[in-house]
Design a protein around this nucleic acid. Structure first.
Lengths: 205, 205
DNA sequence: GTGCTCGTTGAACGGCGGGTCAACACTGAC
DNA sequence: GTCAGTGTTGACCCGCCGTTCAACGAGCAC
C-alpha cells in the first residue's frame, strides 16, 4: 500500500526497532538494509529513504541504543544503604544482574566498540558513554574514599570509578566468552574482600 | 613466477603474516582474500589454495595470534618481589604496559571475541585463552590470599584471578575507547589501594 | 625427452549488498 | 478537479567478494 501515511516519525522508530532485532540476531556485521526492511515488513528502498545511508542507520541505531539504556540505576533500596562500601558493592551486584538480563544489548555495545576503533564518530559516542558511566559511579566512589581517607590517600574518585567500571566490563567480557567456567559468585566475593577491610559479610547463598 | 617452489610451509606463514597486517589495518571485517593476497604479493587463488576457505584462514590467523602471544610474562624481576601483593601489582602494571605497546593485537582479540559470539569454534578458543590467562594469575592470587587468610576468608584463587583479569581487560576497553579521558596512573593507584591494606606506596611519577 | 605432480596465476562466475530511480499512491491545498 | 509534495515500492545498476578453474611452469622420476 504505497502512499498510506503512517504516523510519520513512527516509521523511523519502526525501522530502528527492526534494525535492533536484526543486529541482535545476526550481529552488526550481519546487518543489511534488505534484512532490516524485511524484518520491518517494508521495502528496502524505504529504509534508505528515511535514513540516507546505511552508515546513518547504524549511527541512529547507536543513538537509540544509548538513549534507551539507563546509565546506572541507583534505586531507592540501594541509595538508603548506610555504608558507602556496601552501597558500592550492591551497585556492582545490581549491574552484573543487568548484564545477564540483557545480553543482546551488551553484545551490541561490544560490537560498536569495535566499530569505534575505525570510526571516529562512533568512538566519540562510545567514549562519552563510558565517561558517563564512570561519572555515575564517581559520587559513591568519593564517599568510599572519604570514609577511609588514610587507606585511600592519593586515590581519586575518578580512579576508583574507573576500577568499578572495569569490574563490570571485565565481568561482562569473561561471562560472555565462557559462561561455563566463569563463576560470578566467586568473582563478587573477591571484589567484596578487596573493598572491605573487615572480614567479608556472607553474601553468597 | 609460477611454479617456483618456495620453502613449502613458509608460504602459509607468509600469508598469515600478510593476513595479520591486513587485519591490523582494516579490521577483521575489512579482511578480504584479495587484500591478503595483494599484501603478501601473491595471487588471490593461491591464498585459497593453501587455506581452503576464508573461514579456515581466519581460524588459522586466530591460532597464529594465540600461538605468538605469551599468556603472562612473570619475569625474573617480578618473581623475586617478596610481598605477594606487591608482586601482583607489579604484574598488573606490566600487563598494562603490554596493552599499550601492542594495541593492534589487543584490538584483534576484541574482534575475535565478537566473532566468537556467533561462531562456537572461535568462542571455544577464546574461552580457553581467557581461562589460561586466569590460570596464569592463580598462583600469585593464591599467595595473596594465603598471606592474609582472615581478610580473604571465602575468596578463592580463581575468583581473585578473575578480578585481576577484569582489571586488565577493563583497562584495555576503557583506554581503547577513550584514551584521552582515561588516566592509567589514577587507575593503578586505586588498584593499589584496594589490594594493599597499608597506605599505598607512591608508585606514581 | 616424457610425463607426473605440485605450486601458481589470473580470469571468470555467481551472489549479494549498498544505493538509485522511475513510477505510483495517497493527502492536502487551491 | 488539479497540482504539488511526500511516502512507498521494487526493479535495477554497479562493485566487491568468495570461490572455481583452465592453463602454465618448475622440478623430478624414469
Amino acid at each position: 500500500m504505497p502512499g498510506t501515511k503512517e504516523p510519520e516519525e513512527s516509521r523511523r522508530a519502526q525501522i530502528l526497532q527492526a534494525a535492533y532485532e536484526v543486529a541482535a540476531r545476526h550481529g552488526l556485521s550481519g546487518l543489511t538494509v534488505r534484512l532490516v526492511a524485511t524484518s520491518a515488513g517494508l521495502s528496502p528502498g524505504l529504509v534508505l529513504f528515511h535514513f540516507k545511508t546505511k552508515e546513518h542507520l547504524l549511527i541512529a541505531l547507536l543513538d537509540w541504543l544509548l538513549g534507551t539504556t539507563s546509565v546506572l540505576l541507583v534505586t531507592a533500596d540501594i541509595a538508603c544503604i548506610g555504608s558507602p562500601i556496601e552501597r558500592l558493592l550492591a551497585l556492582l551486584e545490581r549491574e552484573m544482574d543487568r548484564l545477564s538480563s540483557e545480553p543482546c544489548r551488551i553484545r551490541l555495545f561490544f560490537e560498536y566498540w569495535i566499530v569505534g576503533i575505525r570510526s571516529p564518530g562512533v568512538r566519540r559516542k562510545m567514549g562519552a558513554e563510558l565517561a558517563r558511566y564512570r561519572a555515575a559511579f564517581r559520587p559513591i566512589a568519593a564517599e568510599v574514599l572519604a570514609a577511609d581517607a588514610d587507606r585511600f590517600a592519593g586515590v581519586t574518585p575518578a580512579g576508583l570509578a574507573a576500577v568499578a567500571v572495569s569490574f563490570i566490563k571485565g565481568c561482562a567480557v569473561q561471562s560472555m566468552i565462557d559462561p561455563g567456567q566463569f563463576d560470578i559468585a566467586e568473582y563478587l566475593r573477591a571484589a567484596h574482600a578487596l573493598l572491605d577491610q573487615l572480614a567479608p559479610i556472607d553474601h553468597a547463598v
